[in-house]
Amino acid sequence: MFGFSLRPRKTRSAQTAKDRLQILLAHERSAGSGPDCLPELQRDILEVIRRHMKIDKDAVEIKMDRGDEWSSLEINIEFPSTGRA
């Protein structure tokens, strides 16, 4: 209304802020155990696997991707190939 409409309209960052918050908070509210959940999970997984095979303490890698519709939990376990001694 002040005649600045010649400038290209920038993306509406407020909407981005709202979307990001909604996704994040949905997860934070449901995750009762909070930030300790993933380290504990990592420790438990490591313990279970070690019962069956010999792996390194740092061999378990856990990644979480929190999405709107669904989230994914990616667990990567490295262990020595059978070819090695």
Binding site: K10, R12, S13, A14, Q15, A17, K18, L21, Q22, L25
Partner: peptide, 13 residues
């Protein structure tokens, strides 16, 4: 200008 969340946005969250 769409640079800041609206009152409704914040209350909805």
């Amino acid at each position: 200008r769409g640079e800041m969340m609206t009152v409704d946005d914040v209350l909805e969250i």
